[in-house]
Amino acid sequence: MDLDYSQRIIDCIDPHSKVLDLGCGDGALLHAMAQQKQVTCYGIEIDFENILACVGRGISVFQGDINEGLHEFSNHSYDYVILSHTLQQIHKPLFVISEMLRVGKKAIVSFPNFGYWSIRLQLLLRGKTPKSKSLPYEWYDTPNIRVLTIQDFKAMCKREGIYARNLGNESNWLSEKGVFLLEKFRR
């Protein structure tokens, strides 16, 4: 868990809210959030070992595949739906984000920023697929199926009518990760 970015997510959560974390991993983020903000929280996770780790932390977790959507959850049944460091592994990101904003009143998305200066330099100078702390994998052995930048993400939100508040560093150059709080514009 990247403590700095996780803390930014936790900081923007209202105490005692109801939170759903998609691809919650070993439950570390939810565990920290439950301790700091007394939230009612659930994770969704596909990997058994991660589920076991969540149970070991006392975190409630639902085994499921977020690529299949959230049809099991009703509209606005959560205050926040979180997708932390998982967007780059999703088959249909627009579908999942729209599902997050259907089920959650607000959504929080974080992702490794491909526009980070060191990534740009690696590609420019070395001509090889860049790696970073957030993107440590070889191109042929990675769970990440897409790369995106903070600029890309902002443009997508604008096009989709989603209000996106940047919780991280404003600069596409200087941010290793993008972290956004999303709300759907309502007419």
Partner: peptide
């Protein structure tokens, strides 16, 4: 899943696992 979904709606502590 239906039971779990309902328990989650009711804010109950519940973990669901579909064993392969």
């Amino acid at each position: 899943k239906e039971m779990v979904k309902t328990l989650m709606k009711l804010n109950k502590e519940v973990t669901y696992c579909n064993l392969e």
